[in-house]
């Protein structure tokens, strides 16, 4: 565990807490893509199946349980409790366009052709693109609430910090995992446009409105 990885995990944790607080406090999930949230729940449940096969550390297990349970809670809030506030008219990204290629890629390019490993690989590939329905929704409506933009920033920052973690691990531990690295870079690149808007607008106290 190095400082980049810890900061990445904390950023990830913060993103999810911000999202849940936003939904809970405003009693609304307006502006949040339910499709992205379903993809994230799929990411965590397929990646963390090793909770039952490998024990790494208490930290690791607690975080995994947190990510699985909060992603399920988010879906419950969006599709059951605050269903009336869910903006499904703007949440129209076809997730089959992501799920099908990611499944094929997971079956073809993996470290080991075993059920758990293929599911892990699927989840890594899926995570890299899972935010697309959310970014599509923001571009479709042309804006995002400030709290939603904080959520997106923390969620994007998490994988960017993991890239520094991988550089560190490569130099100091001789460890690298190409699948995670390539997918992590793709994931971070997808946020670049948003990062730019976040830094130039939200940090200066303006709302996140896309240029017309």
């Amino acid at each position: 565990m190095n400082v980049f990885r810890l900061a990445g995990d904390l950023s990830h944790l913060l993103a999810i807490i911000i999202l849940l607080l936003k939904i809970w406090k405003t009693r609304s999930c307006a502006g949040i893509s339910g499709r992205s949230q379903i993809l994230f729940a799929l990411v965590y449940t397929t990646r963390y199946l090793d909770l039952f096969t490998n024990f790494i550390s208490l930290y690791n297990s607690v975080m995994k349980v947190f990510f699985i349970s909060t992603s399920c809670a988010t879906i419950y809030l969006m599709y059951v409790k605050f269903k009336a506030t869910y903006d499904h008219n703007h949440d129209t990204f076809r997730i089959g366009f992501l799920l099908i290629p990611v499944t094929i890629l997971g079956l073809l390019i993996n470290h080991d052709f075993t059920p758990l490993e293929v599911l892990w690989t699927f989840s890594i590939y899926l995570e890299s693109v899972a935010i697309l329905p959310q970014l599509f929704m923001v571009s479709k409506t042309g804006d995002a609430e400030t709290i939603t933009s904080h959520y997106l920033f923390c969620l994007g920052l998490y994988r960017a910090l993991y890239i520094f973690n991988w550089i560190y691990r490569y130099y100091f531990e001789g460890f690298y995992d190409l699948i995670a690295i390539v997918a992590g870079v793709v994931q971070t690149v997808l946020y670049c446009d948003f990062f730019y808007l976040y830094v130039t607008r939200v940090i200066k106290g303006k709302a996140l409105k896309l240029p017309a």
Binding site: R5, D9, H12, D50, N54, I56, N60, M63, K64, F67, H111, D112, T114, L116, E117, W120, Y162, N165, G174, F175, Y176, D177, L178, A180
Partner: peptide
């Protein structure tokens, strides 16, 4: 080395 099936990251 490349670790295949043991993933210690989240």
């Amino acid at each position: 080395d490349l670790i295949g099936t043991f993933h210690d990251e989240l």
